[in-house]
């Protein structure tokens, strides 16, 4: 108590904790957006190049499909899920939720954000 009374030890200001929480919430939003954009890119590529038609060409077609698969964007979706999940469980009392529940919430959020962005793009809203 002496150190506290003599001001040798000081409280961290409230704004630091608020900033940390807002930072984490922003991080979750950024991860969700990144995940949604990665997912939309995969959907766009699937629509443009119709890769499933390659399976009609047997083993050769399958090999081409596997080599041209957009692994980078799939990785982006998975990393976004992981990043959003980790940050989300650190905010407030979300640690009480099981890992399965957190991942479901994050995957659901990415899907919803993707659908919203898709609809906005379809109705002609310029996002970039």
């Amino acid at each position: 108590m002496e150190k506290i009374e003599n001001d040798e030890v000081k409280m961290k200001p409230r704004w630091q904790f608020k900033a940390m929480v807002y930072g984490m919430k922003s991080g979750v939003i950024i991860f969700l957006l990144a995940g949604a954009l990665s997912l939309l890119t995969m959907v766009y590529l699937a629509q443009k190049y119709t890769p499933l038609e390659l399976l009609d060409y047997g083993d050769v077609g399958r090999e081409i499909l596997l080599s041209d698969f957009p692994y980078l964007f799939l990785g982006g979706v998975l990393m976004a899920c992981l990043g959003a999940g980790i940050l989300y469980s650190k905010i407030g009392d979300h640690y009480k939720k099981t890992t399965k529940m957190v991942m479901l919430l994050v995957a659901g959020a990415i899907t919803i954000v993707s659908m919203v962005l898709f609809i906005l793009a379809k109705i002609g809203v310029k996002l970039v």
């Binding site: 030890v9 961290k12 630091q16 407030g92």
Partner: peptide, 15 residues
């Protein structure tokens, strides 16, 4: 106790 005091502004009253 020192750490608790330093971080007391971060205490969530829901806990």
């Amino acid at each position: 106790f020192i750490s608790a005091y330093v971080n007391i502004q971060g205490f969530d009253h829901k806990l």
